[in-house]
């Protein structure tokens, strides 16, 4: 089957997709976008989180055919020519990255949280990130990173909205 969709702002078309493939597989193996990670493929870890029409989803649970003519943003689409997104920079600065396998999913999820909520409380951060497993950090530095990113986004002239898709 042919899949035509928009990924990170660009029109993408791939052929010979098997109908049972997930969006995650198509991104990773057919579009050269392996940033979204294949940790559980059952919606239990959040490592494959992407935006689908502006909503955070596990790409492992989206059938390839379901994304025709939809708009997808992956972790690869969060940074731009000016550099890393503040969420990405905060993950580095806070030591929230160890092995890094959960990181892309967490970065996208945190990005989504801060797009909706300018200054989330700790319980709000925890509930928003509860679908993203991390095995290395115990999550403390991930919380630090989201708090720092929120502060930095609030300090940017355009405010958080200006820095978020």
């Amino acid at each position: 089957m042919r899949i035509t969709t928009t990924v990170n702002g660009a029109r993408r078309e791939v052929d010979d997709v098997w109908e049972g493939e997930s969006l995650l597989y198509v991104l990773r193996e057919r579009m050269g976008l392996p940033g979204s990670k294949n940790a559980c493929e059952q919606g239990e870890c959040g490592s494959c989180t992407v935006y689908l029409d502006g909503i955070l989803v596990c790409s492992c649970l989206v059938a390839a055919g379901q994304v025709c003519d939809r708009d997808i943003v992956t972790v690869e689409g969060l940074s731009d020519q000016q550099g890393l997104h503040p969420v990405q920079q905060a993950f580095i600065d806070c030591g929230a990255v160890q092995c890094g396998f959960c990181t892309p999913g967490l970065v996208v999820t945190a990005h989504g949280l801060l797009a909706r909520t300018e200054h989330p409380t700790d319980p709000e951060i925890r509930e928003a990130l509860a679908g993203n497993l991390c095995r290395c950090t115990g999550y403390e530095k991930i919380l630090d990173a989201v708090r720092l990113a929120a502060d930095r986004l609030a300090d940017t002239p355009a405010g958080s909205a200006g820095r978020l898709r």
Binding site: E19, S22, E41, G43, C60, L61, A63, Q66
Partner: peptide, 26 residues
């Protein structure tokens, strides 16, 4: 039938089920 895929795709990803047709309701 498949909508959110939160059950159906797990079956597909783990080869527990190979339906002849997927009926997308989205």
């Amino acid at each position: 039938p498949i909508a959110g895929g939160t059950d159906v795709m797990v079956e597909l990803n783990f080869d527990h089920h190979r339906p002849a047709f997927l009926l997308d309701l989205t």
